[in-house]
C-alpha cells in the first residue's frame, strides 16, 4: 500500500499533464475553444426542449432545467467511460516503451472529463437563474451525487478499459449500452409517464444519481435515501470490480496491444 502511494506521488505530475492534455487538445483548433463546454450542453438542452416540449407538464417552466440536469450528468458518464475505455489502446505506444503505472491512463481520462463537466455546471447555474429557480439549502447536497457519479464512472471505466484491450468490440457494444442507459435515465421525460416500467428506472444506478441531483438543485428537497444507498453501493462495487479486474490483467495488456 505504501509502495502504491509512493509510486502515485512520483507520477502525479504525469497525471496532471495527461489531464491537461486531454482538455487542451479537445478544443484546440476551434475558434470558441473551451467555451464549447458551455455552448454544447446549452444547445442540446434547447434541442431536447423543443423536441420533447409536448412531454412537459402544463405551465412547467422548470422543464428546461430538468432536461439540462439529466443531460449533463449523462454526458459526463458517457464521455468518461468511453474515453477511459480507449485510454489503454490510445497510449499503446508509450505503454510498450516506458514503465508507467497503467491505471494513470484511465484515471486521467475520467478526471479530465470530470473537470470539463464541472466547468459545464456554469450553464446549469445560468439557466437556473434565468428561469428563476430558487436555490434552497439542499443545493449543497448536490455535491454528494456528483462524487458518487465520479467513482461510478471510474469503476466502470476501469472495467471497460480492461475488456477493450482484449476485445475491440467493446467500443461498439458500449455505444449501444450507453444509448439504452440514456433512454432509461429519464433525461427528457418524467418518471410518472412510464409508471408501468418504473422498475427499469429504479434498477438504473445512473438514474438514482440523476434523481438525487435534481432533488438538490431543482426540487429543493432532501436526497432520496433509497436512491442514495443504491447508487453508493453500485459505485463501490463497480470501483472494486474495476480495480480488481484491471490489476489482475494489466501485466497482459502489452501482449495484446
Amino acid at each position: 500500500m505504501k509502495q502504491i502511494i509512493k509510486n502515485f506521488q512520483k507520477y502525479r505530475f504525469l497525471l496532471s499533464q495527461l489531464v491537461v492534455k486531454e482538455i487542451k487538445l479537445k478544443y484546440r483548433k476551434s475558434y470558441l475553444g473551451i467555451l464549447w463546454t458551455l455552448i454544447e450542453p446549452l444547445l442540446t438542452m434547447i434541442v431536447l426542449y423543443l423536441v420533447f416540449s409536448k412531454l412537459r407538464k402544463n405551465n412547467d417552466r422548470t422543464f428546461a432545467v430538468y432536461i439540462l440536469t439529466g443531460r449533463l450528468l449523462y454526458s459526463y458518464f458517457s464521455h468518461a467511460t468511453k474515453s477511459a475505455m480507449k485510454s489503454i489502446r490510445v497510449n499503446a505506444q508509450m505503454i510498450k516503451k516506458v514503465y508507467v503505472p497503467k491505471y494513470i491512463y484511465p484515471l486521467a481520462s475520467v478526471l479530465s472529463q470530470f473537470i470539463t463537466f464541472l466547468i459545464s455546471l456554469v450553464v446549469l447555474a445560468a439557466v437556473s437563474i434565468v428561469l428563476r429557480i430558487k436555490p434552497t439549502i439542499h443545493i449543497l447536497e448536490a455535491i454528494i451525487p456528483i462524487i458518487i457519479l465520479f467513482f461510478m464512472a471510474l469503476g466502470i471505466g476501469l472495467v471497460l478499459a480492461t475488456l477493450a484491450v482484449f476485445f475491440r468490440d467493446m467500443e461498439y457494444l458500449w455505444d449501444v449500452v450507453l444509448m439504452i442507459i440514456m433512454y432509461c435515465s429519464a433525461i427528457f421525460y418524467y418518471p410518472s409517464m412510464v409508471s408501468d416500467n418504473s422498475w427499469i428506472l429504479r434498477m438504473n444506478p445512473l438514474y438514482a444519481v440523476i434523481l438525487n441531483f435534481r432533488n438538490a438543485i431543482l426540487e429543493g428537497v432532501p436526497l432520496d435515501s433509497g436512491a442514495l444507498l443504491y447508487s453508493i453501493a453500485f459505485s463501490a462495487i463497480a470501483l472494486l470490480a474495476g480495480i480488481w479486474l484491471f490489476y489482475k490483467n494489466q501485466d497482459r495488456f502489452i501482449l495484446y496491444l
Partner: peptide, 16 residues
C-alpha cells in the same frame, strides 16, 4: 498535436 515545448513536459513526465 502538441507543440515541441509541450511534448518536452509530457515526455519528461512519462520518464518520471
Amino acid at each position: 498535436q502538441y507543440s515541441g515545448a509541450e511534448n518536452i513536459y509530457l515526455y519528461g513526465a512519462m520518464l518520471g
